[in-house]
Amino acid sequence: MTGQGPRIWLRRALILLYGLVGSVHVWSPGTLMPIMPGWVPEPRLVILATGFCEIAGALALMLPRLRRAAGLGLALYAICVVPANVKQALEGIHVAGLPDSWWYHGPRLAFQPVLVWVALYASGWMDWPIRRRGEA
Rank of each mutant, 00 (worst) to 15 (best):
I55P: 03
V40G: 06
L59H: 01
Q4M: 07
V21C: 00
R44Y: 12
R12A: 09
C80W: 13
V82A: 15
G97S: 04
R131S: 08
C53H: 05
I55R: 09
W102H: 07
A56Q: 05
G71S: 01
Q88F: 05
A84L: 06
G3E: 01
I35P: 03
R44P: 00
Q4I: 06
G30D: 15
A58R: 01
V81D: 03
L10M: 14
G51K: 06
M126C: 14
G30M: 10
I35H: 08
I15T: 12
A96P: 00
L120A: 11
E42Y: 02
W39V: 10
A69H: 14
P43D: 10
Y104W: 15
M62I: 05
I93G: 09
P64A: 12
L59R: 01
I15K: 02
M126N: 08
V46F: 00
L72N: 00
G22H: 04
R7M: 08
P6Q: 08
A96D: 14
L120K: 06
T31C: 07
R65A: 15
V118E: 10
Y77D: 03
N85R: 08
W125K: 07
L45G: 15
Q88L: 12
Y18P: 04
A69Q: 09
L72S: 01
R44Q: 12
P29V: 12
G73R: 07
A96N: 09
G92M: 04
P37F: 00
L32N: 09
A78M: 09
I47Q: 10
P107K: 05
L20V: 14
G97R: 04
L115Y: 07
G124R: 11
G97F: 10
G57C: 09
V86W: 01
L16M: 08
V114Q: 04
R67N: 06
L109G: 11
R132L: 06
C80A: 15
P34Y: 12
L66I: 00
W103R: 08
H105M: 02
R7D: 02
P6H: 11
V40N: 06
Y77L: 11
Y18S: 04
L109N: 08
H94K: 13
V86E: 05
L66E: 02
P107A: 02
R132S: 12
R132A: 13
A70P: 08
G106Q: 00
Q88I: 05
G106W: 10
G5T: 11
L59W: 10
G51Q: 05
G38Q: 10
S23G: 14
G38V: 07
V118A: 13
R108V: 06
I8M: 08
V46C: 12
R11N: 13
G3S: 06
L63T: 09
A13Y: 14
I15E: 14
I47K: 09
W125N: 03
I8R: 15
C80S: 15
A122N: 02
L48C: 05
V114N: 04
M33I: 13
I93H: 10
V114G: 09
L66K: 01
G3M: 02
L61R: 02
P83F: 02
C53W: 13
I35L: 14
K87M: 09
I55D: 03
M1F: 15
K87S: 04
L16Q: 03
W9L: 14
G5C: 00
L17Y: 15
L72W: 15
R133E: 07
L76V: 09
R7P: 03
M62T: 11
A96E: 15
A58F: 02
V81M: 12
